[in-house]
Amino acid sequence: MVNGYAAASLREALEIRASRDVVPYAGGTDLMIENRKGVRYLFLNKVPELKAVAVDDRYVRIGAAVTFTEALACPDVPRLMKEALSRIAAPAIRNAGTFGGNLGNGSAKADTALIEVAADGKVCLASAEGGRVVDVDKFYLGRKKLDLADNELITEILLPKKGLEQYSYEKVGGREALAISRVSFAGVFAAENGKITNIAAAFGAVADTILRYKDIEAMLLGKTVQEAKGLKADYLNAYAQRMTLTRGRVSAEYRKRVCMNLLNGFLTKFGI
């Protein structure tokens, strides 16, 4: 086809990616709005290896070309992710939008990427030479900058199979549907034997990248809920100090207040 390559297998896709100057095309919902001139697309929407959801002993593995609608219908996809998926845009966009595209667009507003960051998700990258696995929060290098080489494709998103049962998810958009996140928040909580083992908090759409501060989270790890309550003020203060937010469709001050309220609400939800 003129100015396009349709790959029938991952191998073929990687070969084209390595040998030609192409833009990977998954769902099209971001790319077609940009409407870049003079580019060639590598169509990934029919690559079978990218269309599957699989489960191994540790991870739910979601293919990069799996659409949001397909994931919503899949029993293996964690509830937290589904909650975020169900609030993305509207059916026609969810039918087109994919996990790989959402991540590959590099936006801090990407609703699935927020969940992946909060869930300690990983992204699998492949090139004709081989593959590598990167933590999703390390995959974002800066505003619209990703740790993705010119010859690589996103192939899978890995979400932990366990540990995502207790969470908070909040999305602030301008309306009830067709809403781009103005602030989004995902928190994951876990405790074992009375001690907090996970208290991940991730903030989307408020800065150049999705924000997560593991060093602040560490303040509460290993503590009992009661102990955590005592540390709550310091913990919240640490976030308030650290978070430098940008303005977008709403002001930075608003974003900050909402983030702090939602973080506080997350702690409260789990008794802290």
Binding site: M1, G4, Y25, G28, M32, A92, I93, A96
Partner: peptide, 12 residues
């Protein structure tokens, strides 16, 4: 499946 045709490239 429902799509917005403005966001679909012909190759797809």
């Amino acid at each position: 499946v429902l799509y917005n045709s403005c966001c679909v490239a012909l190759g797809a």
